[in-house]
Amino acid sequence: MLLQRFLIRLLTMLITLFGVAIVVFVVIRVAPGDPIAMMLPPGATDDDIARLRALYGLDKTIVQQFFIWLSGVVRGDFGTSISLRQDVLGLVFNRLPATLELAIVALIMAVAIGGTTAVLGARERGTAVEAGIDIASGAALSIPDFLWGLVLILLFGVLVPIFDISGRVSPQLDLPFATQFYFFESLLRLRFDLTWDLLKHMLMPAVALALPLAAIISQLLKQSLKEVLDLDYVVLARVKGFSETQVILREALKNAALPTLTLVGVQFTFLIGGTVIVERLFSYEGLGNMAIDAVINRDLPLIQGIVLVFALLFVLINLVVDMMYALLNPRLRHG
């Protein structure tokens, strides 16, 4: 039963990825812009163009190209980047950890800020504290992440320059890392000097990504907390002698978190989408920054590889959210 559900789930994931692959493949070939034209100097002859076209397999029909590419992907070969002349999979895996670290740190910040303000707002419901939280979350939500990025650069990069506004790590540092997960690895290796340097680079883009999500979490969680706080079992807990904070944390939070969790899953995928522009803004060497370069250079294999990896991430996030939902809700666990 469980195995069957797992297999169905896996199959739908594969179908989703296949659909994404088709759409991306067709769209970037139909859209204007020719990678060959980008590679050759202005005086190139038609003969040169045709030869290069054949070299990259672009002289075949879209359907033929697609199946050639797909048969490579199935074997783990995503082709060679046209602009960087390197293996696409290697390039993507080299950059993916940077983006994942940024997104995860942003998510943790969003959950921490959003969760704390929601609990505080629910506890102080009807007071000036709640009104202040509402105003702050309204402001955080109405400004998109890339604009927050600019605001933060202005504040903490220019006016009070305490953070680094560009790159992932200071270039003069020796990095002893075995993986590309610099931030997490620096924590594990207890190299907190490096952690601090990485954090100084990562903090502003992470905050820019986190603020709108934190505001959504805060508003939604506070609303469901306030609904749960009127229920009978919460009243009963108050009669037992528990304080309002204890009541919120022990009785209300878990039940109120369920509707928020679904939304956070969806919003987290938006956050990952947001890394593309925010990484560019902070010259952060992640996958999103590379995606923009790939699009500018019409680097078809690289675009396909990056989009497919993003799609895989989204599908996996949804899977994790569903699993957490079942974990938090005992009524879903059996049957």
Partner: peptide, 27 residues
Amino acid sequence: PKARRTLIGARTALIPQDPLTALNPSR
């Protein structure tokens, strides 16, 4: 407030009206 809460918790109890909603569904 805190002393009152503790006193009420120690000396009183409530039998609620609706047993279906008076227990926390996730505990």
